[in-house]
Amino acid sequence: MTTPAADTVTLAAQPRKVLLLLLPWLLVILPLLGLVILLKLAPDNACAQLFGLPNAYWALLIATRGLPLLLLAGSLVLVPGALKTIRSGYYPALDSIRLRPTVARHGRLSVLRGYGLLLMPVLAIGILLVGDRAYSDVMNGRSVADVTQAIAAGCSAPADR
């Protein structure tokens, strides 16, 4: 058996606290996941609607707004831990809550990981901007009502054969 190095600390497991911290995320992710499942189980025709909006519009919202916002929220949660990592030099931070016993290491690589975690919200904002640009390109200045009416008009018109 090897002895731990002087620059490592073992963090105790706190599974109940971890589960309590995950509860708000479940309340955010489960409705989004439910919406994705409803869209997947919906009919494949272009006229299908969910809650009064076309399925294609729901898919556009999830892809261009929902997932990038979820990514941004997840990356913003990591910022306090990243700042603690940079200040203390230990990764993960010494006061972090862990599901199982974890070894926290001290050194330059740990500080570099902290800076990497700080970059994640910047990258998430870039992805959010790309998603907003894609939404604007698809909508082409039209409102949701205009798009819904255009799809409804196409569904009610008889098909030319």
Rank of each mutant, 00 (worst) to 15 (best):
G116P: 01
T3I: 14
I62V: 15
A124F: 04
G126K: 01
G89Y: 12
L20D: 08
S88E: 13
A12N: 15
L70G: 12
N45R: 12
A153D: 14
L53N: 03
P31S: 05
D160S: 14
I127T: 12
D132I: 09
R105G: 05
V103S: 11
K17P: 03
A82T: 07
A157F: 00
L23G: 05
N45T: 09
T3A: 14
L35M: 09
L99D: 06
N55Y: 05
L69N: 12
S136D: 11
A48Q: 11
L99N: 05
A59F: 04
Y91H: 03
L39D: 01
L19D: 08
A63L: 11
N45W: 10
D146S: 14
L21D: 02
Y115V: 09
R87E: 04
D160F: 10
D44C: 05
R16V: 06
G34T: 14
A13W: 07
L99T: 05
S136L: 13
A82K: 06
R65C: 02
D44P: 00
R105D: 03
V9H: 13
P24S: 08
L33H: 05
G81P: 02
A157C: 00
G81N: 00
L39I: 02
V103C: 07
A82P: 03
L22S: 15
V79R: 13
V36L: 06
G89S: 12
T64L: 03
L23W: 13
N140R: 14
T85Q: 02
R133N: 10
A104G: 06
L71N: 04
A134L: 13
L60K: 08
A104D: 05
A6P: 04
L70W: 01
G34L: 15
I62E: 06
R65M: 08
D146C: 10
A48V: 01
P24Q: 00
T8R: 13
S88G: 04
L33Y: 11
A13G: 14
P15N: 07
L22Y: 14
R142S: 07
A124M: 07
F51Y: 07
A73Q: 02
M120S: 11
S96R: 08
R142Q: 15
L53T: 14
Y57A: 10
G107S: 07
S143P: 00
L50S: 08
A150V: 00
L67I: 13
L27V: 11
A13R: 08
A152M: 04
A150M: 11
V138L: 10
S136I: 03
L32I: 10
L129D: 01
L60A: 02
R133F: 04
Q149C: 02
M139L: 06
L21C: 01
I151P: 04
L23T: 15
V28F: 09
W25I: 14
I151E: 02
A150P: 00
A63T: 04
S88F: 04
I127K: 07
Y135V: 00
P68A: 08
R113S: 11
I97V: 15
A157V: 00
